[in-house]
């Protein structure tokens, strides 16, 4: 489950799920939803992503920044994410397609993940994450 939340200048993303990899996957869907409707992005190409960080919060930032980078250099949008995380090392396969301005009507380009309102929490077995994306 994911949603966007209000930030005066930019866009906040929030996600929740039963496991850490799942909540990271949901956050990635929320990231794509800043640009376009994720359901409208086909899964024709895949990209492998690896990253690591000193804690879960910084890992979330690195994960989403890695996707922003792949979006920018490959000019792609992504809609399916398979994440595994072990000892603060993330490995993922992400699927999507080349951006098509007519089809995807992209609203705005994510520039970077900020550390503003950044959190990764596990409460009663439920993971929730949030951060603000600079657009």
């Amino acid at each position: 489950m994911w949603e966007h939340f209000s930030h005066q200048a930019d866009i906040g993303i929030k996600a929740s799920a039963g496991t850490l990899p799942e909540v990271f996957e949901q956050a990635a869907v929320a990231l794509t939803a800043i640009v376009t409707e994720p359901g409208n992005v086909e899964q024709t190409e895949s990209v492998q992503i690896e990253c690591s960080a000193e804690n879960n919060e910084l890992l979330l930032v690195d994960w989403l920044n890695s996707i922003i980078y792949e979006m920018a250099v490959r000019k792609m949008l992504f809609s399916k994410f398979e994440v595994s995380i072990e000892n603060l090392k993330l490995s993922a396969k992400i699927w999507g397609e080349k951006i098509n301005q007519e089809k995807h009507l992209p609203a705005v380009e994510p520039k970077a993940v900020t550390y503003n309102q950044l959190s990764v929490k596990n409460e009663n077995g439920k993971w929730t994450v949030q951060c603000v994306i600079d657009v």
Partner: peptide, 17 residues
């Protein structure tokens, strides 16, 4: 453009640590 965004991302991480 993308260059500035990535410089910001790269150095923010290093400065934070």
């Amino acid at each position: 453009r993308g260059l500035g965004h990535q410089i910001g991302t790269d150095y923010l991480k290093q400065m934070a640590s």
